[in-house]
Design a protein around this nucleic acid. Structure first.
Lengths: 340, 340
DNA sequence: TCGTAACAATGAAACGATTCAAAGAATTGC
DNA sequence: GCAATTCTTTGAATCGTTTCATTGTTACGA
């Protein structure tokens, strides 16, 4: 198991100085064709591969960007990640991906790891309220862009979707189709997105004097969590059910849908209208195609990288917040037909 | 923007030698309590964070493992990735994730990137036939484990699921429920998994003299690709339809299902039985809950890391292949009721 | 009090790339 | 043919950590 060739080995093999090899790699124009050929041949013969650690040590920073998301399994984030990777690649950077799983400890681990790696900057969708940790990053001069979270512009740049507006859109739609006893499913409400969507929904409900909004807190944001909320609703039986349900994301909505439709006593949308959030690919292929709120995920990922590049390049610490507006997607799960 | 503190700064600030600071970090037992306290205080005051590039340069290798998957958006891989990350974390390693998107060029980019990073090893779900590139890795002594792909044991370790067996399971199930005019949806067939699943299905069909298997090649493995195949089936109209469809993955199956059920002329499973592959979370919440073939994704990810650790630790280049057996999951989409 | 052992702390060398001032070679103009 | 200029090449210094042989310190038994 021979340790891999270094630039020095290449230099010896080609009978040139190490600086020349470096120039071949970084400033090919400075080197004569003859020498270049010899060096390239040596590189090929020795199977030389640049050692990025050494480069990075010299350069003082890496060519990677850290991205910490709340849940890679969530298609919303998968889509953001993809867009961010593509955008970063255009700048010649690579993305290191971390999945905090809504867990502050895992998040902290990744932050530490990425700092040790001297990433150029950090895109993060933070867990709950982690201002202290983020302030620390700021002090250390690690450019950071918050993703899917509005930030104090004095401190950070951020990209976000207006969750309040999205919540309003969803609830307003339910109200517009004649629903009055609404329920909101989501949790924990310590998650900002959940809280904002709820707030927007409440804003809409207040516009209709005879409408009510019940909050059903879920254990997480998964299909399973939704199913468990749905099961508890089913136990209530017919009369106690809401007639319109707004779920904080599509996974929850799909879970709720499973519970309600499995017992063949509740009909969607006749008895209960259901709307989710995110408009993931699967919304359209649910038992009853799911109405949802669509977020511009590609724009989110791309813009996040752009804002980070701005911060990295400009020395002056000016921050920008970009807020995208979500969009209502109507499908069968909120169909108006209450008379079957 | 002050460059971050180095170990030397810490040493000065605490009035000790650099070696002592290093010892505090790596061998706390070698340092007296008094000194340790002073050093830790200095670290805290200066906000010192280890520079991983320097560590790595000295050590000769990183503490990261490269993982290249064919498609992060695919829940099958998402699940494998998650398991691999968790398993790696137990060994104190981190996973660098790359998404080749079935594109050989992107795959090559990631391989190069990870080599420059001097990853401890590589887990890869290779695109098509890339033996040359992989042979190169082998020559360079980069321990590599193939994921979801059987390998020549003389050359690589690998973890895989027996796709031929899975294809057989799926087709055999369709035949057992009385279907005879089967169709296979998947593509491109240059993807090994697709080819193997098809082969297994063909094996099952040969066991029934009156059964036929038609191959419908799709453009990729997405819901959209499935929908497009489904649309072309719908155009055929009633008589020309197969009575049992086996899709190379669940996304395709969901797409096919969308097409078939949108026109309210074809009933699943009465007219056409449908089975997918992977048993993703959404299979159960489809318009008609989808039968599928379940792969042990967690075991796959975990085992891949274990095999890699074996290779890294043992100097002798012995390889192992672990093959998992998939499992049939029966749901409504292949229900036996042909009489409604 | 001295010798020995155990324990702490030191600091130079090494890892592999990049940089840059300086030296050397080739080319040009006169 | 020579000086001036441009083009190539050189190699030592540097980045921040870990390692390890060495030195310094303390404690203990004789």
């Amino acid at each position: 198991m021979n340790r891999s060739a270094s630039i020095k080995d290449v230099a010896n093999h080609a009978s040139v100085a190490v600086g020349t090899v470096s120039n071949v790699l970084n400033y090919p124009d400075r080197v004569s064709q003859r020498t270049k050929d010899r060096v390239l041949k040596a590189i090929d013969e020795l199977g030389f591969v640049r050692n990025d650690a050494a480069r990075q040590l010299r350069a003082g920073h890496s060519r990677t960007i850290g991205l910490i998301v709340l849940d890679v399994g969530n298609p919303f984030f998968t889509s953001v990640v993809r867009a961010a990777e593509d955008a970063a690649a255009l700048n010649g950077s690579a993305v290191l991906l971390g999945d905090s799983g809504h867990d502050a400890a895992r998040e902290a681990n990744y932050i530490d790891l990425f700092q040790e790696q001297r990433v150029q900057g950090l895109l993060i969708s933070p867990v709950g309220d982690v201002t202290e940790r983020l302030d620390l990053l700021r002090e250390r001069g690690v450019p950071t862009v918050l993703v899917d979270r509005l930030a104090d512009e004095a401190k950070f740049s951020s990209v976000a979707v207006d969750d309040d507006a999205g919540g309003y859109l969803a609830a307003r739609h339910l109200l517009d189709t004649g629903r009055r006893r609404l329920a909101f499913v989501g949790g924990p409400t310590s998650i900002r997105q959940v809280a904002d969507r709820l707030q927007g929904a409440q804003r809409a409900v207040k516009e209709e004097p005879d409408a009510t909004l019940e909050v059903l807190e879920s254990q997480g944001q998964t299909v399973l969590a939704g199913r468990s909320v749905g099961d508890s609703l089913v136990e209530r039986g017919g009369g106690g059910l809401p007639d319109g349900i707004f779920c904080a994301n599509d996974l929850l909505a799909l879970g709720v849908m499973q519970s309600l439709t499995m017992t063949h006593t509740v009909r969607i949308p006749e008895d209960v209208a259901l709307i989710g959030y995110d408009d993931i690919d699967f919304a359209v292929s649910a038992v009853v195609p799911l109405s949802s709120i669509r977020q511009p995920t590609e724009a989110l990922g791309r813009t996040a990288i752009d804002l980070l590049s701005e911060e990295v390049e400009s020395q002056s610490p000016t921050h920008r917040s970009v807020v995208f507006t979500p969009e209502l997607v109507v499908r069968q799960s909120t169909g108006t037909s209450s008379a079957g």
